[in-house]
Nucleic acid binder design. Sequence first.
DNA 1: GTCTATATTTGGATAGAC
DNA 2: GTCTATCCAAATATAGAC
Lengths: 197, 197
Amino acid sequence: MKKVQTSDSAKMRILKTASDLFYRQGYRSTGTNEIIKKAGVAKASFFYHFPTKEALALAYLQDLHSHEAENLLKFVNERQKPSDRFLAVIKWIEPWIKSNKLRGCGFLNMVSEVPDKKSPLRKMAKKHYAVLGGLIRQLTQELVNSDPKRYRHLDVSAIADRYVAIVVGAIALSETAQNTWPARQGVEVVNALIPIP
Amino acid sequence: MKKVQTSDSAKMRILKTASDLFYRQGYRSTGTNEIIKKAGVAKASFFYHFPTKEALALAYLQDLHSHEAENLLKFVNERQKPSDRFLAVIKWIEPWIKSNKLRGCGFLNMVSEVPDKKSPLRKMAKKHYAVLGGLIRQLTQELVNSDPKRYRHLDVSAIADRYVAIVVGAIALSETAQNTWPARQGVEVVNALIPIP
DNA sequence: GTCTATATTTGGATAGAC
DNA sequence: GTCTATCCAAATATAGAC
């Protein structure tokens, strides 16, 4: 049985174990019993730190959001040219889904698993993609500002919306097809959103 | 409690009830007990017709695939012009997700719910989108054939792949955002895949 | 093919001691 | 904060009669 660093606090061990299991196996397929065993904690310790399974799932999503935003931003900021920065988001997808072994997006998967539309878990997913949309909008605006003559006619908001949808399609179809081609085709589609340089 | 037509056979009542619940509530969130109650059958009758819950889910997906393929084909075949037929698939998405109350795609949702990559349920989802890709490829080829001079340079396979990914993005993001805008933006993105007429 | 009744495991969550 | 022991409901599935 795979276990987590015993040097961490019980709370951290629970969160790390659950994050791994929730992502790989899904939220509903992962029982609290399994998390408790693999984290090496007592049952009561689990519910001491997280009053419900849903509270733990919320912590998982918050953690996931922070880490993914950080990694993506780092990838974008390795580039200087506005057109490179603009394309960075969709170019990030292929290596990212590969490293995730084609298990897709933890937020999209959570939405599918949680039917209740008012669930805080769904709210987190919505927020995650709203933040991504904000980043893309900003990169699009930077691109337009870098060459106003060429890009003057572009609708920044519409392009950002389309871009997010393309990202989601690349991720979700990669999981269903168990192949990375949607991520690569996504790069071409995003490229077509702006005039040929 | 919502029940199904009692005039149907027990097997049909089970399948119809389960299809509704699996789609709206998700596969794992729906217990066999609930299906049994709402279908108005005995426990043993359930397992007589469907040896496992998974077998029922498989029947659900097969049914869903047939119905969705039929409806989409009808929508496409109401059009004659190759460019209209080509665009019909993405234009179908907005009314379709609305009628589904933004619960997304039963196949994508199933993939998220089932972690096992060898599951027959995942295979069905993969096949569903392979068939959709085939239809789109065919419509793209028709379009190219209708005006070879204009479309000669197009890569039919690449366009079809991109098109499917855009469809998936429109559906999945509509569910997460609980809004139809991704479907409308999808139309614009697909439009940009081919030269302006 | 359909029924009632039951088996068995796992689900999330708690009581009370240390 | 962490532990052992336990509760109860819900999960999937089966036995055996009609």
